[in-house]
């Protein structure tokens, strides 16, 4: 898997290049000399516990952290889009105007409409954001990020606030959009399954450093039930320090489930 990454990096300059990135808040070090290359066109997921510095890293790459500059080498492209956990649509602008925030010209309006159509929101251009469901709002946010034709798409737990069914559909959409536009993607998530199903490479951030860099070499679309993905899952959980007890809990759940089904049959 290391060779895989190396191949990509030698082919072209990485989209994002971090060298010794350090960030601390009030003496507490959140990022500790992080080195990271994100090759062009790769879909990477970044996993970590809450408070592990995932969002800090993303904000630094996005240029939103105004104090991180100078603390280490950081190069990121100009055309960066960010999708936040909340859709962050301006309630006083209609959906299309939200998608076009920061974009200019007639040609931009066309791209905005096209982006909305791509995420399945054609016909909702004139709707107000508070008329949209959570999933629709997040689609609009994705459309907004596409209009800028980003070289790098940063997504900070973009599906964290959605219900399970919507989330699965959004996974499909994200993957589809990525395949069509091929930006470099960094997806921050705390959901191991989400990372495995979507990403070609999964990073685990642990104690301010990249603790594990794992290439996931399975064809798409992937299924949650793929047994080979289970191996990746276990490695990632181990890197996240999730103890064996938890996995046992999980299997117990399944047996409980079966027992209940038996009971139901008896009823």
């Amino acid at each position: 898997m290391a060779t895989h990454t190396e191949q990509l990096t030698t082919e072209a300059a990485p989209t994002v290049r971090l060298r010794g990135l350090t960030r601390s808040f009030d003496g507490r070090t959140v990022l500790d000399h992080v080195d990271l290359d994100l090759p062009a066109g790769q879909l990477t997921a970044l996993l970590g516990h809450s408070g592990s510095g995932k969002s800090t890293l993303l904000r630094a790459i996005a240029g939103l952290d105004h104090e991180v500059v100078g603390s280490g080498g950081l190069s990121a492209p100009d055309r960066v889009s960010v999708v936040f956990q909340d859709s962050r649509l301006l309630p006083w602008r209609r959906v299309l105007d939200n998608v076009l925030l920061g974009a200019d010209g007639k040609e931009a309006a066309e791209r905005g409409r096209a982006a909305l159509a791509e995420v399945g929101l054609a016909g909702r251009e004139r709707a107000w954001p508070n008329e949209l469901s959570g999933g629709e709002a997040q689609r609009a946010a994705l459309a907004r990020s596409l209009v800028r034709e980003p070289e790098l798409l940063l997504a900070d737990e973009p599906f964290g606030a959605l219900d399970a069914l919507t989330r699965i559909r959004m996974h499909g959409l994200l993957r589809e959009l990525w395949e069509r536009h091929r930006p470099s993607v960094l997806l921050v998530t705390h959901d191991v399954d989400e990372a495995i199903v979507l990403a070609d490479r999964v990073l685990v951030l642990d104690q301010g450093r990249i603790g594990l860099d794992l290439a996931i070499d399975r064809p798409h679309p992937r299924s949650y039930r793929d047994p080979l993905l289970g191996e990746y899952r276990e490695r990632l959980l181990a890197a996240l320090g999730v103890t064996e007890d938890h996995t046992e809990d999980h299997t117990e759940d399944h047996t409980d489930d079966k027992n209940d089904k038996d009971q139901e049959v008896h009823q």
């Binding site: 996005a62 240029g63 939103l64 960066v80 889009s81 960010v82 936040f84 909340d86 962050r88 301006l90 006083w92 602008r93 925030l101 920061g102 907004r144 800028r148």
Partner: peptide, 27 residues
């Protein structure tokens, strides 16, 4: 502040930030 972040990400100029986000938000 979330809208301030959004404006930064979308590359809005100071003037457009005021016109398109601050003023409508303050109405």
């Amino acid at each position: 502040h979330r809208f301030v972040e959004l404006a930064e990400v979308q590359g809005l100029s100071k003037l457009r930030f005021i016109r398109e986000i601050v003023i409508p938000g303050a109405l």
